[in-house]
Amino acid sequence: MSRVPSPPPPAEMSSGPVAESWCYTQIKVVKFSYMWTINNFSFCREEMGEVIKSSTFSSGANDKLKWCLRVNPKGLDEESKDYLSLYLLLVSCPKSEVRAKFKFSILNAKGEETKAMESQRAYRFVQGKDWGFKKFIRRDFLLDEANGLLPDDKLTLFCEVSVVQDSVNISGQNTMNMVKVPECRLADELGGLWENSRFTDCCLCVAGQEFQAHKAILAARSPVFSAMFEHEMEESKKNRVEINDVEPEVFKEMMCFIYTGKAPNLDKMADDLLAAADKYALERLKVMCEDALCSNLSVENAAEILILADLHSADQLKTQAVDFINYHASDVLETSGWKSMVVSHPHLVAEAYRSLASAQCPFLGPPRKRLKQS
């Protein structure tokens, strides 16, 4: 649940008159999402009104509101027999009622949201009550392989729920002597030191190019640089560091992050930047690179990204790559990247197969709970 924001200063709310007192009302909304995959969808019983329910879910471990999704594969009634019906059901509720908006969509073979439908307002739910769409999607369109909505005969539904909580009022009075504290510009100011090479005390040599930097900042941000300058190493004695395995453009992006906490060109060089972040123990930059690479996972590059993640101990990226390969196994196994990995990294192939087997055979063990970014 997000923290209630402070109200904007009255002088910034309007260029008009300023009242002596004010009130700011925040209506709290808890948002969460749920993904439900139905394997072997074409084998569902086709009687009209037949119901399939998901397991229950909530916004978190401490949330007492429990929900589930309900599907009628062949419609709810005679009117909707040519459609799939989809509903959000409130299973248990400690209150007399709650209000919530919802959005349903289908994830296609690429994991993209399609055929989205959402409620136009927050509906009133009581325990045992459901709301949804009797005519969510035509069955003939859903079952047509050309539309790519049932890869490997799996129907994957994605649901986003927004639950309306209580409202909170914050009130106060205006004073004539309003003090406005300026925003912190530390990142910009440190970035200026790097860009202008002011007050530098060490030189970093990268592929024949020299960059002036500040030992204190490098040591504070990177345990690797800290070790170089702290001990009686040649880098500490000469205040000069030779860097041979990072390209200059990648190095500059890494230094921008060290000084400012930002990497504006990360998406263009996420793979190389991940390697640099791993070498210099820049954990936050490493996770930022993992996130960017996750966003660009595809059938063509899944094997290469899995190898990269394994090489640099990028655990979150590795998990996402394995899950992606499992979901698109029939396509990924035909790529040149996968065939190369079979020869060069057989242990990763074995890991992917083990994960695929456990996903398809849940009876082999208890269900695993899916539970950071600093």
Rank of each mutant, 00 (worst) to 15 (best):
V91T: 13
F211P: 00
K262I: 03
I52L: 09
S336D: 12
K369M: 03
L371V: 13
E145P: 11
E79M: 05
L218D: 00
D166Y: 14
S330G: 13
A227R: 13
M117V: 09
E304C: 10
S42A: 06
E46N: 04
N177S: 02
D245E: 10
G75N: 11
K95W: 14
S336F: 05
V299N: 08
G261H: 09
N326K: 01
E112Y: 12
F225D: 00
G75M: 11
G172R: 02
A350Y: 07
I217V: 13
N196E: 15
V51R: 03
A321R: 00
F363W: 14
V349L: 04
T156Q: 13
A219P: 00
F158G: 13
K372I: 04
H214N: 14
A116R: 09
L86S: 12
D153M: 14
V332L: 10
E304W: 13
V30H: 04
A314P: 08
C93I: 12
E189G: 08
W22R: 06
P5N: 14
Y353V: 09
F125Q: 00
C203T: 12
F32Y: 06
N174M: 04
S197W: 15
P5V: 09
P248N: 08
S85N: 14
C23H: 01
A350K: 02
K180F: 07
N147Q: 06
D245R: 12
A11S: 10
A116E: 10
K28M: 12
L186T: 09
V343M: 08
P5S: 08
G128W: 03
F136R: 02
D140W: 06
A281N: 05
D188Y: 08
K372S: 05
K252M: 06
I307G: 06
Y353W: 08
M48S: 02
Q209W: 14
V206P: 09
E145C: 11
R198D: 09
D82F: 10
R368P: 15
E351P: 11
L190E: 01
M341K: 00
E230Q: 10
D153Q: 12
M228H: 11
K372A: 08
N301D: 12
K129W: 14
F43I: 06
V342K: 14
I27F: 03
A109D: 15
S340F: 09
K129S: 05
Q26Y: 09
S58R: 05
D82R: 10
K74P: 12
L317W: 00
S226Q: 15
F32H: 12
V287I: 02
D144R: 03
C93L: 03
S358V: 09
V161C: 05
T335G: 03
N174S: 02
Y327A: 02
L333D: 07
G148L: 04
P5Y: 10
D166L: 10
V168E: 02
F225I: 15
G191W: 03
F136T: 10
S222N: 14
Q120L: 04
A352S: 04
E145F: 04
F251S: 03
L190M: 07
Q360L: 14
A275M: 02
S2I: 09
G128F: 14
R354S: 10
K262R: 04
S33Q: 04
K279Q: 01
L107D: 13
I106L: 08
A146E: 12
I258M: 12
R284E: 04
E79R: 05
G191C: 08
F104H: 14
E79I: 06
M35H: 03
K66R: 13
A329W: 03
K318N: 13
P5I: 06
R124D: 08
I325A: 11
W67K: 00
S15T: 13
A292L: 12
L69S: 05
S85W: 08
K53P: 02
C68Y: 11
R124V: 12
V241S: 06
Q212A: 14
L204A: 15
G172H: 04
P10V: 06
F141S: 09
F199K: 14
H328I: 06
N244K: 03
R45P: 08
P5H: 01
G365R: 10
A314Q: 12
L193W: 05
V18A: 09
R221Y: 15
W131P: 00
A207S: 14
K268F: 10
F57C: 02
R370I: 10
A219C: 10
K135S: 15
A19D: 03
R121F: 10
W22K: 08
V18S: 07
E47H: 02
E351S: 03
G132K: 00
D144G: 07
R99Y: 14
S295Q: 11
A329F: 12
Q316E: 11
S21Y: 03
T25N: 00
P223K: 10
N147W: 12
L348M: 09
M228N: 15
C68Q: 05
V29W: 06
A207N: 15
Y327I: 09
S162R: 13
I307E: 13
N296R: 13
Q173P: 01
G128M: 15
S298P: 00
E183I: 03
N326Q: 13
M178W: 03
N108E: 12
P362H: 14
V349S: 11
C202H: 14
A314W: 13
D82V: 12
K81T: 12
K110C: 10
M117Q: 15
C289P: 00
I243T: 02
C44Q: 05
L69N: 15
L293M: 02
F32L: 14
I305V: 03
D166S: 11
L274H: 02
A352E: 06
L186D: 05
A100C: 15
F257M: 05
E47R: 12
V332Y: 00
S15Y: 12
Y123G: 09
N62Y: 03
M228I: 12
R370E: 04
K318Q: 07
P9W: 09
W338Q: 00
K372G: 08
L317D: 00
Y34A: 08
D82A: 05
E79V: 03
D271R: 05
G191M: 02
N244T: 07
S295E: 09
K74E: 14
A11C: 06
S92K: 10
Q120T: 14
G75Y: 01
R124N: 15
L282R: 00
R138H: 09
K110M: 05
V322A: 04
L88A: 08
A303F: 09
N40L: 05
E113W: 04
S80Y: 05
E79S: 02
N40I: 05
P264R: 06
I258G: 09
H312Y: 03
Q165P: 13
K134A: 05
A227I: 13
R99I: 12
S55T: 04
A109N: 15
S33L: 09
T200H: 15
G192V: 05
M176Q: 04
V168I: 10
I38K: 02
M341A: 15
T335A: 05
V342A: 10
P346H: 05
N147M: 12
F133Q: 13
I27P: 03
L157F: 06
G60V: 10
L293H: 11
L311S: 08
G365P: 13
E118N: 10
G16A: 09
V342W: 08
A116G: 11
V29F: 02
K135L: 15
Y87A: 08
E290P: 00
N265K: 03
P10T: 12
A146S: 05
E160R: 04
Y123K: 01
T114W: 08
L65H: 05
S355A: 08
G75S: 05
D291A: 13
V349N: 06
Y87F: 08
K215E: 12
K101G: 11
E79K: 07
V126L: 13
E195V: 04
M341T: 04
L306K: 00
N326M: 10
F125P: 04
L190W: 05
I106E: 01
C68K: 14
D245C: 08
G208I: 10
V179Q: 11
I137G: 02
L142G: 07
K95Y: 12
M117G: 08
V98L: 02
E12W: 06
N169Y: 03
Q212K: 12
L76N: 15
I325K: 01
